[in-house]
Every structure is written in structure tokens, then in C-alpha cells.
């Protein structure tokens, strides 16, 4: 071996992860490109594709929202195996408001967003002190329990669900609403997690005892994070209810719990952009795989396994690292 590969961080990166030293427009462009180009591409895609793929993009956005919500919870040390809980609660609130009270989507969606957040936070409040897999098990159990309760008590249409709900003006409207929501949530969460407030949330994940002895009420912070995450999930549910004009037991299905986790694992946890990227890869992929039918979930499962074992950092972290480095071959000195 005469040569070896050398990897160097670009000079633009200062000593810490999130401090940059910008000296020129070129460098600003360097930071802007990965942020602006995907948004532009996304916008172009919406103009070019037909109604079918517009629908796919809507459900992609919905899963992206759930994945973002999952990532915020994880950032605060709460691992959820039941995003379907948030989704389902939001969906049912919307359905009930629209079906029984005839409220228009203009009201149902905001009410379901806030109300879903409140309901889910209250449901999980008693188990906030649990960590790790214990919390995960509760989130796994809750949506299943709600499904069975609806099945057993036959409330809200029971197994039939509520159909004939109001729709939104047009597919294009649904599409832009969902995409703007994703981008807004992404921007907000990414900002939030780097503030001092976000630092406290991340501190709770790493070492909650240390946060507590610092005189900070971790339950209060966890509850706030939970509210934000579940409100985002509930919004996704509310939106989907009006898109399908139907709400029923399928809203608590495994898909809504697994896909967001798979997205986050594939895309890269802890960055928000990663889970979103993951959703934008996995959902269209699964749509393309519709031909193989039931194999879809098998593939998600395998994705989960392969990525947790082989590339635990996820795609986003990997590309981010590569983008900020350059590689060159240098002579090995003997």
C-alpha cells in the first residue's frame, strides 16, 4: 500500500457539531443547498405526478409526521412502539366531531390536533416515570386496548367505523396542507431541539437523574414533549380521516406504529430530517411494492433488522457525514 485514503472535515465546521464559521456566500450556499434543493424537488414532484401518486405523497407526508413525532419522543427518552395511538385518537376525535356534531374540517382538524394531544398526554401521564422498554410496552399495549374496547363496546360505529365524513376541497389542497405541515413540524422540531429547552429534553434521555438534581421537573418536560409529539400524530390522524372520509378500527393498526419507527431507523434517529427522509423512501417504496402484497410488512421488518444491526446511524447521518467531509488519497510515508 503506497497510498491511503484520508478523510478531513471541511473547514466550515468549527469545533462543535452545530457551530459553523461562515466566510463567504459560497459557504452559505454550501449549507443552503441540502436544505433548499429537497424542498424544491418535492414541490416539482407535486406538480408533475398524477392523482394516484399525489395520494401516495399525502400518505407519505402523514407517515413522515408520525415519524417526526416518534423522533421527538425518542429525543426526550421515550421510545414509543405505538404511534398508532396518537394517529388513532386524532382520527377518532375528528370522525366523532364531524359525524355527530357536523363540524366542518376547518374546526375538526385543529380541535383534534389539540384535543388528541391532550387525550394522549393524559393517557400516558401515569407511566411517564417509566423508562426504556417499560414505557415502550405501555405504548404498544394502549392502541391495541383501545381497538378492543371499541370492538367490545361497539361505540363510535364499532367494527363498522364512521363513514361518509366530510372531505377536503381537493386532492391538491390535501397534498399541500400535508406537505406544509411536514415542513413546518420539521423546521420547528429541529429548531426546538437545539435550544436550551431542547437540551433539557435530550438531557432527560441521557441521564434523567442528573436533570432532576438540577432542580428541573422532568415529568413536566416529558409531558410537554409528549403533548407536542402526540398533537403532531393526532393532526396526521385528523388529516387522514378527512382524506379517506372514513374512520374506523384500522386507524389503530400496526402499520401506523411500525412504519414511523422503520422510517426513523432507516433515515437516522435524532435528526428529524432523517425520519422524514426515511418516510419519503419507505412509503413510496411500499407503494411500488404493492404488487407483492403482504410481503410489504415483511420488508419493513427486515429493514428494521438490517438497519438497526448494520447501519444504526441511518442514511441521513451517513450522508451528512460524507457531505461535510472530503476524501483524498495521500502517500503513505515510509
Amino acid at each position: 500500500m503506497e497510498h491511503r485514503k484520508e478523510r478531513i472535515d471541511r473547514g466550515i465546521k468549527a469545533r462543535t457539531e452545530d457551530i459553523y464559521a461562515l466566510f463567504s456566500y459560497r459557504e452559505m450556499l454550501y449549507l443552503l443547498v441540502p436544505r433548499v434543493i429537497p424542498i424544491l424537488v418535492l414541490f416539482l414532484v407535486t406538480l408533475l405526478v398524477g392523482v394516484y401518486w399525489q395520494k401516495v405523497l399525502i400518505s407519505t407526508a402523514v407517515f413522515a409526521l408520525l415519524a417526526l413525532s416518534w423522533d421527538l419522543l425518542t429525543a426526550a427518552g421515550m421510545v414509543s412502539l405505538g404511534q398508532a395511538l396518537f394517529f388513532g385518537v386524532g382520527a377518532y376525535i375528528t370522525g366523532i366531531l364531524n359525524h355527530y356534531f357536523n363540524l366542518s374540517p376547518l374546526f375538526t382538524i385543529p380541535i383534534a390536533t389539540v384535543g388528541g394531544g391532550v387525550v394522549c398526554t393524559l393517557l400516558l401521564l401515569p407511566v411517564l416515570r417509566l423508562r426504556g422498554i417499560y414505557f415502550a410496552m405501555v405504548t404498544l399495549a394502549l392502541p391495541l386496548m383501545l381497538v378492543r374496547i371499541i370492538e367490545a363496546t361497539k361505540i363510535f360505529g364499532g367494527t363498522e367505523g364512521l363513514s361518509g365524513l366530510a372531505g377536503l376541497p381537493s386532492t391538491r389542497f390535501e397534498l399541500y396542507l400535508s406537505l406544509i405541515a411536514v415542513l413546518a413540524v420539521l423546521f420547528f422540531f429541529r429548531r426546538l431541539i437545539n435550544t436550551d429547552y431542547g437540551l433539557v429534553l435530550r438531557g432527560i434521555r441521557d441521564n434523567d437523574r442528573s436533570v432532576m438534581r438540577s432542580g428541573i421537573n422532568i415529568y413536566w418536560f416529558k409531558a410537554q414533549a409528549l403533548f407536542m409529539a402526540s398533537a403532531v400524530g393526532a393532526f396526521a390522524g385528523a388529516l387522514m380521516t378527512h382524506v379517506y372520509m372514513f374512520v374506523g378500527m384500522p386507524v389503530f393498526e400496526m402499520d401506523y406504529s411500525i412504519l414511523p419507527i422503520a422510517s426513523a431507523v432507516v433515515g437516522g434517529m435524532g435528526t428529524f430530517a432523517g425520519p422524514m427522509l426515511g418516510a419519503f423512501i419507505l412509503v413510496p417504496l411500499s407503494e411500488a411494492l404493492r404488487g407483492v402484497g403482504g410481503l410489504r410488512i415483511v420488508i419493513y421488518g427486515l429493514f428494521l433488522v438490517i438497519f438497526t444491526v448494520a447501519l444504526p446511524e441511518g442514511i441521513f447521518h451517513y450522508f451528512q457525514r460524507k457531505y461535510h467531509q472530503f476524501e483524498r488519497w495521500v502517500k503513505v510515508e515510509k
Binding site: 436550551d196 429547552y197 437540551l199 433539557v200 438531557g203 442528573s210 438540577s214 432542580g215 428541573i216
Partner: peptide, 11 residues
Amino acid sequence: KNLIIPLFSPR
């Protein structure tokens, strides 16, 4: 950044 957490406290 570790010290931000106590500095952020209500106290």
C-alpha cells in the same frame, strides 16, 4: 452544554 441544564432550572 452540560451545564446549561442546571442553568436552565427554575431556581
